[in-house]
Design a protein around this nucleic acid. Structure first.
Lengths: 145, 145
DNA sequence: CAGCAACTGTCGCATATGCAACCATCTCTT
DNA sequence: AAGAGATGGTTGCATATGCGACAGTTGCTG
């Protein structure tokens, strides 16, 4: 027989670690601003990388395009995000945060920062950095949604 | 301002790594047996740990109880899983795999094993082990669903 | 041993989600 | 320059999901 050990299976550990940490942090954007996980992630992308198209967010964030489409619509309705037509491609829209969106992002980013410090302290700085490095290597850049 | 860098944010990296690896593996149980992610995870738990109650699976796997309840119903309908009343607690049911469930689990476990080898080879054995260790430390054992 | 809080699993409901189909646009090939 | 095929984004539809409420059970506390 095959000695499959669930507790050594990396996708399982990754899922649990992701769930565990994401849940703990989701309180901030859920209760604070009524944002969904997808909405927070989109805002985080735009806050960090500036203007992006929806499909760039899909690729970077491993999100499906219909999910992004609807989350973006919600953010726009909430006045947190703005669309402008791309100069080079009339199919695409450049997404960016409004002033209000920037403010919300700044607040959430501050919470994220402090949450990050909590995690790093728990692991120890060197292990936390090692973890981040390994995760970056593990993330397969070809998600083809 | 706060120098929040999304690409250093552990929950983000964890989510992406989990998505990336889980998606790649999901083809096996989806196309092969029509299982959902939750159903595969439940089977993996039962295959690895033997009989468990639904709530134990919730806690271990960071799954919500209604999700587990419905996934279990589906597995039972498919003849992969069996319930039996717990001897000690008449509220709880012990879940375990049927023979057919064991067979399916064995097949999926073999695929999981080889997928795991692929990941480990990509990272290198020592880094893969370091990753698993760190993830286990990171997983907060108090998810209170 | 009565009362009550905590826990197990299910279900209804509103909402979120994935998938495929779709239109518009772009790009590549010839 | 014209078509085929890829790509960007939206939407319809069926299904999945989360949340809260629920009934049944347990065990703790006085």
């Amino acid at each position: 027989m095959n000695d499959f050990r669930l507790d050594d299976f990396l996708p399982y550990l990754l899922n649990n670690a992701a769930e565990s940490t994401s849940r703990a942090f989701s309180e901030h954007y859920r209760r604070g601003y009524g944002l969904t996980r997808a909405q927070w992630r989109i805002m985080a992308h735009l806050g960090t990388f500036g203007a992006l198209t929806a499909s760039e967010i899909c690729t970077r964030g491993f999100l499906e395009k219909s999910k992004v489409s609807r989350a973006v619509a919600g953010l726009e309705d909430a006045g947190l995000l703005r669309r402008q037509p791309s100069t080079h491609d009339r199919r695409a829209e450049l997404l960016s945060l409004t002033d209000k969106g920037q403010q919300v992002h700044a607040d959430l980013a501050a919470h994220a920062r402090s949450f990050s410090v909590t995690l790093t302290d728990r692991l120890g700085r060197d292990r936390a950095e090692a973890l981040a490095d390994i995760l970056r290597d593990l993330i397969d850049p070809a998600p083809q949604d």
